[in-house]
Design a binder for these strands. Sequence first.
RNA 1: GAUCUCGUAGCUCAGGCGGUAGAGCAUUUGACUUUUAAUCAAAGGGUCGUUGGUUCGAGUCCAACCGGGAUCACCA
Length: 503
Amino acid sequence: MAEIQKNDQELRREEELKLIEEAGINPYPYSFDKNISAKEILEKFTDETKDELNNCQVAGRIMSIRKMGKASFFNILDESGRIQVYIRKDDIPEGKYDIFKLLDIGDIIGVNGYAFRTKTGEISLHCTDFELLCKSLKPLPIAKEEIDENGNKIVYDAFADKELRYRRRYIDLIVNSDIRKTFRKRSEIIKYIRNYFDAKGWMEVETPTLQPMYGGASARPFMTHHNALNIPLYMRIALELYLKRLIVGGFEGVYEIGRNFRNEGMDRNHNPEFTMLEIYVAYKDYNWMMDMTEDLVRNLSKDIIGKAEIEIDGKIINLEQPFKRAKMFDLYKEYTGKDLKGKSLEELLKIADELKVEIPKGASISKVLDEIFGAKIEPHLIQPTFVIDYPIEMSPLAKMHRSEKGIVERFELFVNGSELANAFSELNDARDQRNRLEEQAKCRAEGDDEAMIVDEDFLYSLEVGMPPTAGMGMGIDRLVMLLLGEKSIRDVLLFPLMRPEKI
RNA sequence: GAUCUCGUAGCUCAGGCGGUAGAGCAUUUGACUUUUAAUCAAAGGGUCGUUGGUUCGAGUCCAACCGGGAUCACCA
């Protein structure tokens, strides 16, 4: 796929570049005094105000050219959108039209001109002069566009190859420029979360990405090596344990929005690196965190998307109505008709078999419960639902339930059948935490390579003492997918991981 | 990792039961000073993902491999 040999279109562009330089023009100048955007011209133009638009200086990439002898129309695309430019041999400096003829689709130019309305009514720019700002040497996979009578955009021969769109996102952003909106929205969503937390006085922090010991979640890590210390290092799989150390240190509200790395499979819900939000607030519990999470998600949708109803996959997700709250074991009863509470491993395996849920060999109680949940309950959780009060085996970092035995104070928020957030009343009894991590270590020794490791320094911090704390984690990529109605994580990541191209 | 499916010109695609490669756009040349998928006339552009196999003959049938997508498994 790597073009070592140049094709005829590339050779031609190089020829044109030479001709431009021979005419004494620098095809790569240093700046351009842009004073208005394409969108601003289209918005400001009326028959009364057009005189104010007599000296526009716009810059952008040429996306189409229609030549008619000694005059031409072309469209340029800037960050704000497209505008049509009309250029006439007689209305630009002597000899400049010959330079214009050397320009191609993909070149970046600056245009001086005045706004006007064409015979057919399109607001356009009448060029009085232009400057080449960058000669493009590769042809763009150009698509043609048309607006039909109903104002719908019809795209002909669209650049649709998913592989190339992900591999060369910069081309995707030019040619399918509507997707720029997705990434702008993503940025707005993250900014909104920051503002929301900052307004409450919680502090954004940065904790290590490279860690001598990984923890805070059940997943396989990426491993690397530090030469100077000659030690193995791991890419973090969660933010949790370092943020809790900061609560121990006396900060009462901390959050981090950062990259986690998990050495697992990839599909439309998973990328090896993904963005996680985690927040910890001292002196609060999971009930409080549930209210906060609900408020955040609802307001995000209202303020960023403009409504609290989201259409995805033909389903309407309603974020306005109060989110359903259901105990995990009640959901088992509701969807399988069986009471799984307090059952032994043997009993659970039997139930799984009756429900026709396949369980991998050597599964623990937690694993069996998780499998049944994933197969029988998750797909039904389309409308926002807090699943609360998990069995202790599934949650090694959550605090015992204040009134129910064998249960921890934990919730997960499910929307559209997938997990969006996970939160606990954080376990701060150091003795209990040590027991649970040692239990994990046992599972690990028995071959579960996703079980957690005993982090002695983390335990030391709990022994020093952490106040009662509520903590919550939320997958930002999935949040963005939900709010924007995207079905693949790759469509909300600018540069999703791809297998390297073979040359 | 498993299954299904796709890979033909720069882009989007068509190629019946196996007979030697097609269209539109893009590109080049010519015409055209308000077009908008501009138009009109002509031209160039392909090791049909790769490697093998069957066959007189393979884009087409078979196998393996490479790459993508979808579904599943693991995970968020």
